[in-house]
Amino acid sequence: MPYNAGAHDYANTPSMSSGETNYFGVWEGTNNSTTLANWIWVGYTNTFNNAPQYMWADLRPNSGVYFHPVSGGPAIGTSHAYETQYLGNNEWGVDIDFSEVGTSTSNPPGSYSAFAGSNDPGLDGTHGTFTNQTNQSLEYLSNGSWYDWYGGSLVQEGLLTAQYTNGYYNEEESE
């Protein structure tokens, strides 16, 4: 079965509560994850100060999380494009507004889950919950074409957050 090789969404920039760490953006499962057990994320956060700042991060197999702040950040009320894409050789690229801002390494391919919205409060995959789902325009890349990531459902597995597993399976099954 072919797997997703990228995820894309546009996210607005609401104001963020001070004193609370928030992460907004697009998460895509990697390493054949159906539950976002491993992922790559690109979006923005207020983890460095109370103003939104661009950032990308990944949670790779046996590696923990690496986070990468990117200079600049979205203005409150503006919408921006966030995208992840598999590059080959266990590497993923991350884009903000169609410019590549990072490369994730040692991150195997295969994606059956994605989420667009916010994760509050953590990125560790065992704490916090995904909220403010905003994936009305979430799309996935498969075999060089982009498709609407329709359908799917929110899944809860123990403490492991909620994630949006996808319409991709639905589409495959309907063929």
Binding site: G6, Q85, E91, E100, V101, T103, E139, G144, W146
Partner: peptide, 9 residues
């Protein structure tokens, strides 16, 4: 969405 074909970084 735009597909990028090369690894710029």
């Amino acid at each position: 969405p735009k597909t990028f074909h090369t690894n710029h970084l």
